Computed example of a mutant assay.
Amino acid sequence: MSAETEFDWRTIAALNAVSTLAQIGQFGIAFVVLPVWLAEHGLDAAHLGMFAASLWLGQLPGLAIAPWLCKRLGPMWVIVLGLACTVCALPWMAFSVWPYWMAGGMLCGFGLGLRWIGVEPWLYRIAPAEARGRLVGFHETLIALAPIVAPMLASYLGLQGNAVFWIGSAFTLAAIVPLAFASAAPKELQHHPVEKTPAQATAALRDTVFRQGLVIALLGGMLEAAVSGLFAPFTQGRGLDVGQTADLLAVFGLGGLLMQYGVGWLADHRGVGFAAIASAAGIAVVSVALLLPLNYPMIVIAVFLLGGFITALLTLALIASTLASSGNIAKNVSAISMLYTVSAVAGPLMAGAAMKSTHSDALMWFAATAALIMAGLLVRTSSPAP
């Protein structure tokens, strides 16, 4: 089989473009910018935590039913359905008020969940297996543009009106265009059973990697959802205005953008567990540093690093899901993504309650604690089974 036949680079490029455009509308606007918009419209940390949780809660059923829908409708139509959900949700939110914003948040999350499982397993099945970690890192680098582009556009156009909702709708609709250039998705591929040979050592390693992926998803979802959803009240507590908050969110996204390929390379060469422990340690150190009386340039550097380390967690969880030695990629990606999402529902609720009852600094204490717990669990999971 020729390289051109085996690897459909046109479809790989098209699916990466779909994810990049859709992520700006479905994640960059909905998950990153809208909490800032809501904070500007008077929501406190507890209510912002509820809204952030609604986004992830809506994503959960989308992730759950997407593999079933992919088998019956095909990944392409599942992606279109997911995009349509978000295009309907954003205008709804533009003309509604609290608590109806939560309904729009759930529909945005549901659409993202459908699109996520429609694209990712399709992409990874047609990708070169020997470079899958780097491909996941490259793909996550592209979609990491979302939390950079969306805050920059919001900062430029202002957060007082409803422009952010039309920006999100436009980018989500635009994602349909590259989808037209993708070839038909291949049939679902089951992994071959592991033979009773020396290859058992490799299978055991992959099982360990998948367990590491579960740990990363469990704590990583809490971290990403809490920090992205509650960053605005944290910066307000530090005396920063809404413009500076939007700029810092763009810096947060830039850190994620520039570090993802390196994380994929590190996972390919040193293992998922090593890369995740390094990321967790970085999150703990930077979170504590942000509690110190830093000047603004130092805050920018710290937020850049925090964005890179936190964004790396989803990349590593997805790499682990593609290395599982049983099942199929769609189900494995769905399982890891669902666990990530369940924990993401809990993260903003717990951190938001802590911030409301104590101080906005509780967000960074929450992040540091969750990161240290993750590192400890990963060290234990990496230990050989008795």
Rank of each mutant, 00 (worst) to 15 (best):
H269G: 03
L123A: 13
A267R: 04
M374T: 11
I24T: 02
M102F: 12
A53D: 01
Q160L: 10
N328L: 11
L323K: 14
G25K: 11
L69F: 14
M1Q: 10
S343P: 05
L349Y: 02
H359Y: 04
A203W: 06
G282Y: 05
I310D: 02
A351F: 09
F231I: 10
F309H: 04
A154Q: 03
V119L: 08
I24W: 10
T20N: 04
A203R: 01
V263N: 02
L69G: 11
P151M: 00
F309P: 00
S279W: 04
W166Y: 15
T208Q: 15
R72V: 08
Q200M: 14
L69Y: 14
N162G: 08
E224Y: 06
G307C: 07
A203Q: 11
A45T: 07
Q236D: 11
T141K: 02
M259I: 14
S279K: 07
G137Q: 09
P61A: 10
S96L: 06
I310N: 01
G109L: 05
L214E: 09
G62L: 12
L90C: 09
A146I: 03
S343Y: 03
V285Q: 05
A335F: 08
L291T: 01
A103T: 10
A312N: 10
G237C: 09
G221F: 00
P386V: 13
Y100F: 15
R206S: 10
L223D: 02
S334N: 08
T11L: 07
A53M: 13
T315D: 08
L173I: 15
P297T: 09
I148T: 11
M152W: 05
L249Y: 09
A324P: 06
F234M: 08
A170Q: 03
N295L: 08
M50D: 03
S279I: 12
S54Q: 08
P384L: 14
V177D: 02
W116P: 00
Q23S: 15
V136F: 00
L145W: 14
Q244V: 05
M93P: 05
L305C: 08
V136A: 07
F110I: 12
A354H: 03
A14G: 10
V285H: 03
A250L: 03
A131M: 10
A146N: 08
P67A: 06
L318F: 12
K71N: 12
A317R: 02
A330I: 05
P178M: 15
V288E: 10
P91W: 14
Y261G: 10
W101N: 00
P386R: 15
P91S: 11
V136C: 06
A375M: 14
A170I: 12
A344E: 02
A217C: 13
L15D: 00
V242L: 15
G308C: 06
A367E: 03
H41N: 15
V288D: 04
V33P: 03
P91V: 14
V209P: 01
A129Y: 07
G58D: 07
A3R: 12
V285R: 04
M102R: 09
A89S: 08
V97I: 13
G376W: 12
A204P: 00
L223R: 01
P233S: 11
L363S: 12
G213S: 09
A3K: 09
G58H: 07
A64G: 09
L323C: 03
W92M: 11
A45I: 04
I65F: 13
M93H: 12
A346Y: 05
